[in-house]
Write a protein that binds this DNA or RNA. Structure first.
Length: 124
DNA sequence: CTAATGACGATTA
DNA sequence: CTAATCGCCATTA
């Protein structure tokens, strides 16, 4: 069990046979997605859609966002490294969460300009 | 039951 | 570049 992402780390993601079983429980979906986010290296970002693809559920970007919103307070999961496909922070920049995300990214050396991160650090 | 609503995305105008 | 549309899916009203 990974104390950072609240899930068994490096899950053997989805050989199609086991995939259906892994996704049958909401708790498992949570774990898989959090685990994937945990694997985004510091100083880089990934889109919601990319996280969904790596989790074995292409097209469910929206679901990823919903799941990140369910992270327990004080979680070590690097949720701030997830931005949208336009490389923009999905929160309003005025919002506390938008500010928080910007600060966290900058703390990793990622400059955020107009709510946008550089192409260099972005994995689609 | 339907309708609206998101930490979304691809396409089109 | 922005904005609108449609598809996506779970939750909520």
């Amino acid at each position: 069990m990974c104390d950072r992402c609240h899930s068994p780390h490096h899950l053997p993601l989805a050989t199609k046979a086991s995939e259906a079983r892994a996704w049958d429980s909401p708790a498992n979906r949570q774990q898989i997605i959090w685990s994937v986010v945990c694997q985004i290296p510091s100083g880089r970002t990934a889109s919601y859609g990319e996280v969904a693809r790596r989790a074995g559920v292409p097209g469910l970007a929206r679901y990823v966002g919903r799941t990140l919103a369910q992270l327990p307070p004080g979680s070590q999961v690097p949720w701030h490294r997830v931005v949208n496909a336009q490389r923009r922070i999905s929160f309003s920049l005025d919002s506390p969460q938008g500010q928080e995300q910007k600060l966290r990214l900058e703390a990793e050396g990622i400059t955020v300009e107009k709510g946008r991160v550089a192409k260099r650090v972005f994995e689609g």
